[in-house]
């Protein structure tokens, strides 16, 4: 078993109205950032977990997304897996 840092990004599906993103865009506009064409607000879930390998860690995270972390009606998810380096004690 190895330890993995898994990052799950959950974002509103394209085309779905994201009023929060719109509000942030308007706020940026009022700060003078007129060139911002779109803002989408999602969330980042940072998981630490143990799995046999990186593929197993990803599969586990995908299952979690389908069961709980993302709502398939309104949200998409993206998963990034990084193995945690374990420094051997000398």
């Amino acid at each position: 078993m190895s330890r993995f840092n898994v990052e799950v990004r959950v974002t509103p599906r394209p085309g779905l109205l994201d009023p929060q993103g719109k509000a942030v865009q308007h706020a940026l506009d009022s700060l003078g950032y007129a060139g911002v064409e779109s803002v989408r607000v999602g969330k980042l879930l940072a998981l630490e977990l143990e799995a046999d390998d990186s593929a197993a860690a990803r599969a586990m995270a995908e299952e979690m997304c389908r069961k709980l972390l993302a709502n398939p009606v309104t949200e998409d998810f993206r998963i990034q897996v990084a193995e945690v380096d374990v420094v051997e004690a000398e």
């Binding site: 929060q20 509000a23 709502n71 009606v73 309104t74």
Partner: peptide
């Protein structure tokens, strides 16, 4: 009920925020 799959769809943030 929507989250549990007994009803279809989802309830999003109010348009007005």
């Amino acid at each position: 009920l929507c989250e549990s799959g007994l009803l279809p769809g989802a309830l999003l943030r109010n348009e007005s925020l």
